[in-house]
Nucleic acid binder design. Sequence first.
DNA 1: CACACCTACTCAACAATTTGACTATGGAGA
DNA 2: TCTCCATAGTCAAATTGTTGAGTAGGTGTG
Lengths: 187, 187
Amino acid sequence: MSLKYAVLAALLEGEASGYELSKVFDVSLANFWPATPQQLYRELERLAEDGLIEARVVQQERRPNKRLFTLTETGRRELSAFAAEPPRRPAALRDEFLIKIQAMDGVDPEVTRALFEERLSWARGKLARYERVRDRFLEGRTEERYLAEADRIGPYLTLLGGIALETETVRWCERALGILKRRAPLS
Amino acid sequence: MSLKYAVLAALLEGEASGYELSKVFDVSLANFWPATPQQLYRELERLAEDGLIEARVVQQERRPNKRLFTLTETGRRELSAFAAEPPRRPAALRDEFLIKIQAMDGVDPEVTRALFEERLSWARGKLARYERVRDRFLEGRTEERYLAEADRIGPYLTLLGGIALETETVRWCERALGILKRRAPLS
DNA sequence: CACACCTACTCAACAATTTGACTATGGAGA
DNA sequence: TCTCCATAGTCAAATTGTTGAGTAGGTGTG
């Protein structure tokens, strides 16, 4: 149900093809609403049928043709109406890693340490990517300046959310690694 | 696929019925692997068939009878094997709220402020519950003491993860509310 | 004493998501 | 030149997850 609005929200950034969206949902949007290409193509089909988006086919020379989708006025209105409603369900975090940690006590501590290490470096990488996105938003301005000038601040606030999340993940991993180290100084 | 291991991990805490698990998955486990009662009952059925857990029926006087499930040795081994593998897929956060924030610029700022406010108080409530769980773990001891004495630290580390997440959510909401206020001091 | 809510589930139907395979063309590197 | 990777998708199947209703006795509240 929410994928629909995630797609509409993504189209606020402007016209895009299914393929392009599938890239976006893989990196930035994936932060709060992951979706596979298949889901996107189907959803786009549905949204076009319902008149919330419009397609236009672009002939390409050396590439397969593509269909570019834009929000219609109806789509924009529906999205805004959705955005004004309180969320129907709370955020859901699904993390295999946490199951493994919950069950870690039956496992060689060294192996668990390696898992945390991997998670840590992954979180650091993501954080670095977010910071680069942030720089693109700011374009050298201070945050204050940006917030005063920008006409859309939603994407910036969600970005801040992502940064907060990954920063905290880094801290948590570091703390856990410290605990594991103190627990098994001999090995 | 992972629900299986989430259930096995939950049974590390000891024998439980489907109903009891559905309560646990509603509060604590829901932090990293949400599941509805129906999913749990189905999964328990399957796990029992596969010999990873064992059921025993407990007759009750003034209640419907219940089936209590325990981990078998096979189940324990499979869980440990799973816990030693690196995660097959990264964590997935699915949050309707973030879609709404992404699309907030088409909405009355006052409405958005209210959404953030709601989210903030929800996060604070969750944080308070986590802190109580933490106190039950520690039983008056210092963390250091606890970590030295406890035979299982996995559940404590995941709890720290949950606390970190909600702490950060609170900070993020506060920051966003500050930004919204500065942006629209007139209303 | 009626009514809602708690325990403890089961069943059926439906919606959403994931996985894998398949089609085509073009460009880049070994 | 051969192979891999990127573009730009489609199709089918399987798995997962959600929703709603039904059963049935017991407990607590006004």
